[in-house]
Each structure stands twice: as C-alpha cells, then as structure tokens.
Design a protein around this nucleic acid. Structure first.
Lengths: 159, 159
DNA sequence: GTGATTGCAAATCTTTTGCACTAAA
DNA sequence: TTTAGTGCAAAAGATTTGCAATCAC
C-alpha cells in the first residue's frame, strides 16, 4: 500500500533506534507511524497487520511494541487494568478516557495545568505526570463542576 | 484480633451499603477499614485474610472488593496494566506510583492543582480526574522540573 | 556464518464464571 | 424456607517465555 516514502521513514525510525529493520518491524512501524497519531492495543495492531497481509505473530507484536516504547517512539498508556494501549504521540499530553466504550483521546498538555505538584519521595524522581480525565455517558448530575460543551465526542467503534 | 468496636463498624458499613454481613465480608471489611487508609490488591487481601484465619476464597475477595467499590467504600486505582489496586481512601486525592517497586501512595487532592481542564466530549461527563505522579529511582538527570526533597520514601517490600 | 529475530505453543498471571452447596433473614 | 452468598474448579483474557527455525548483516 502507499508509496515508498513512509516505508523509508519507518525503516529510518527503526535503524535510528538500533532495531534491526526486519520485515515484521518495518511493517508494524508503517502501520503505527504512517498516519496520524493513534492509540492501539497489541491485539488490535496484530489484527491490522494480518489484514494488511503482514505475517507476524502476536508475540512479535508485543515484543515490537515494547521495543518501540523503550526506544521512545511509543508511550504506554495505562487507563484500564488488564489492557495496555500504546500511543504514537510521545509529546507532552494527557488523556480523555470513556470507560464505557474504551474510547481514548489525547488532550494537549497545554490544555491542562497541573500546579503545586508535591515533592517526590527521597531517592526518587518524577518520570511523568499522567492526567486521566475519566468519562461516562452524560446522565444524572455531572460528578465534577466542569462544563460539558463538546470538542470531540466518543463515537467510532472505540478503542 | 482487636476489640469488638471495629467489628461493629465493619458490620455497619456493610449493612448500610445493603450488603449482607456474612462472615467473609465482615472479615474482609475489618481488614480493610480497621487501620488507616491503604492500597491492596485482591491477591494481597486474600493472603492477609488467610493469615488472619479468615477462610475465604480468592473469588469471594474479588467479589467483595468490587461490591465495596460499587458501594463507594473503596476506589479502584489503575496505575499498572494487569493489576488492580483498591484504595480505602475514597476522598478526593491523587497518587504517587513508584513503578520499579509497585509502591503506591496518596497525594492529597489539595496538593495538586489541575486547571484549565478541557470540556468533555458531547454526551459525556467527567466522572473523575486521576493524576498519577510516576516515579523512578533517582538517577541521571530528573525528567521533569520538579524538586526532589522528600516526604515519604518508597521502602517496604512493596505491593 | 553468526547472532539477532521470529513463530508457535505452552506457561503465567490476574480476574471472571458456572454451579452445587451453605448460610443469612 | 427462600434467596443471597460462597467455594472450587474451570474458563477467559492478556502477556510472557522457551526454543528451534529463520533472517539480517
């Protein structure tokens, strides 16, 4: 599918990270980085790969996702115990998470201001501050005094 | 162990929540609510129960933890994919999470100021805003411009 | 060639489920 | 009684692991 440009880009990302550009890794990297930012689970990426005629095992998908995360090309997002999402957006940002559907969306870091952060315990350092804005379907009174206009509604098949 | 007072308290918490005060539930409630606030996993609470001579199955521990969460007596904390922590502190607060050890600690809600929260998507409402301050062992340059004094260091055998 | 990678299947781990049995009300 | 609750063992998911076969360099 597509030109050869993105193919080269995926290849570059891998080699620059010291990962041998195997057929599987390049294929997965293309699926992950060709389009716009996205959130995927291993299972989901594996299905996409197969649908794209990329023969790869689920175990390799897991390995690759972790290697890319280690290389700083992906960020693991923990919003649900029991399932890991990998985010291609590794810039400073937070998330909206619609628990009923599993819908996950980025919130620019600049849109949330976290102040007065307490000092971390001695011997430790802060690696990241995650802000997860958990959502439910609008119903009886809102739980928090936060407006309820509308940027991007949870619609699609989610996840 | 202990007097009969906390026993009664655990019993009251259950009945007030409409949960039949069975031997297992009362025992688990005592373990959870007698002391100060704590974070537990199902496996951990189960081990404690057995150590305290409370015969209860892991399945029942899971059931009870979820029932108590549904009743608002516990709050589930998601900081690690694949493992659920239950927090006896259900007041407004956030968390410090030391990933290397699994150490989890509360951060008073008043210690973190979250501003400029974006509007939730149409048809949804915010149920909660979780702030997770992820920690690693102090090493090469800190990742974020946040001091590094010391409130409560991660020590114990963790989890 | 040679060591890194992959695939596959089995193994782990955490959590859930089905159902006969037990205990509260 | 009668209905909720419990235990156990099996099932279900998600992720990891062991190791022989395979591929990149």
């Amino acid at each position: 599918m597509t030109s050869t440009r993105p193919f080269k880009r995926a290849l570059d990302l891998l080699t620059r990270s010291g990962l041998r550009p195997t057929r599987q890794r390049v294929g997965l990297a293309r699926l992950l980085f060709e389009g716009c930012d996205r959130h995927v689970t291993a299972e989901q990426l594996h299905a996409e790969a197969l649908a794209d005629s990329l023969k790869v095992s689920l175990a390799t998908v897991y390995n690759t996702l972790h290697q890319l995360t280690g290389a700083g090309l992906l960020r693991e997002v923990v919003v649900d115990a029991g399932r890991s999402y990998f985010d291609t957006n590794v810039t400073f940002h937070h998330h909206f998470y619609h628990e009923p559907s599993g819908w996950l969306a980025d919130v620019p870091g600049s849109k949330v201001v976290v102040e007065a952060l307490p000092q971390p315990p001695a011997g430790t350092r802060v690696t990241r501050v995650d802000v997860i804005i958990r959502l439910a379907d609008a119903r009886e009174g809102a739980d928090l005094p936060v407006g309820n206009a509308s940027p991007s509604p949870p619609e699609g098949p989610k996840i």
